[in-house]
Amino acid sequence: MNIFVLMKRTFDTEEKILIENGSISEDDAEFIINPYDEYAIEEALQLKEAHGGEVTVVTVGSEESEKELRTALAMGCDKAVLINIEEDLEDGDQFTTAKILYEFLKDKEADIILAGNVAIDGGSGQVGPRLAELLDIPYVTTITNIEIDGKNVKIVRDVEGDSEIIETTLPLLVTAQQGLNEPRYPSLPGIMKAKKKPLEELELDDLDLEEEDVMPKTKTLEIYLPPKKEAGKILQGELQDQVKELVSLLRSEAKVI
């Protein structure tokens, strides 16, 4: 099976967000593979183990994303591709990313493409379905189980807590939801092997794309932190009195009851 995984490098979940000169400061921040993409990588590896084939992990990013690509290779992916847009593009959005991935994937004859259902930084969740539409293949988002039998695919999809049982066929794009699997940690031999695995670097030029072709359709005017919450009120006294005070505060001060 010809398997592709889309991966994004994101801020570590635990990171504090600081804003400097109008944008999010990346100094000293820890980066990770977007957690949902990690599920996608794990599922890709399990599909390969069950059906044979090759797993290629792809990212649109900058030089720095090499570290996360190496981690994916250490987990067991066979090849990595970095589409480096740092030099060519000042700004991009989900339109941009999907278009670039499309140009890369259009002649790759992927049987299945896996991605995370959302990236925890931008939180749009657009790239997977956009790409499937451009490639003219079906997609299923937020999946928690997948079984492939020849060309036939059976999927369990999470829909706000309910489960849909879906039937579809390859070629296909799916996006991963929590619960799909438990991602493996890279093993020591895996890390050693990863250093020698192929990591191809491409730029827009290599995909016959000009900057105008991928100009974003949206623009961020401002980024800001939510107003700092004043320290909450920890109630004191007898428990019964605290409860009475809470109810009255919710009614008269917070006015939510």
């Binding site: 999010i24 931008g122 939180g123 623009k219 961020t220 980024i223 932190l225 939510p226």
Partner: peptide, 15 residues
């Protein structure tokens, strides 16, 4: 909201 609600952005469609 971005970064799971740790920050916000204001955004427009340009095209």
């Amino acid at each position: 909201p971005i970064y799971s609600g740790k920050a916000f952005e204001k955004k427009i469609i340009t095209d």
